[in-house]
């Protein structure tokens, strides 16, 4: 299962790779990483919606996570089906806006990776 993680923090890649190392080793999860909204969009175009789940940070310079969500949902409403938004500021406004724009879930930093794993498994 292909999961695209969008975050401007580079170390997120290492973190995910280690957190889900067993799953990756077992071939349960397959992670791709993008440093910005724009990068994510380019990736999605190239991969032709290979990714089935997107995990995106909201607070990013340039295109924000919400903007990315909006883009994906408006330009290609079909796929991928699951988009989860992550934010450091667990405020209601962002939450409701994310859901309104078509986010499937809303997660708050710091991430509970056990919970995330369950959500990922259940989503797939």
């Amino acid at each position: 299962m292909k999961i695209l993680v969008v975050d401007d923090e580079e170390d997120v890649r290492t973190l995910f790779q280690q957190r889900f190392r067993r799953e990756i080793r077992a071939g349960e999860f397959d992670f791709a990483f993008s440093g910005s909204g724009e990068e994510a969009l380019t990736y999605l175009e190239g991969q032709d919606s290979e990714a089935v789940l997107i995990l995106s940070d909201i607070n990013m310079p340039g295109m924000s996570g919400l903007e990315l969500l909006k883009q994906i949902r408006t330009t290609s409403p079909t796929a991928p089906p699951i988009i989860m938004m992550i934010t450091a500021y667990g405020d209601e406004e962002s939450h409701s806006q994310a859901l309104k724009l078509g986010a499937n879930d809303f997660l708050t930093k710091p991430l509970d990776f056990g919970e995330l794993k369950q959500k990922l498994i259940s989503s797939i």
Binding site: L15, R19, A88, K109, P110, F113
Partner: peptide, 13 residues
Amino acid sequence: HEIQNPLNFVNNF
């Protein structure tokens, strides 16, 4: 936010 991020990393790592 800026502190939260590295702290998250510290905790996570």
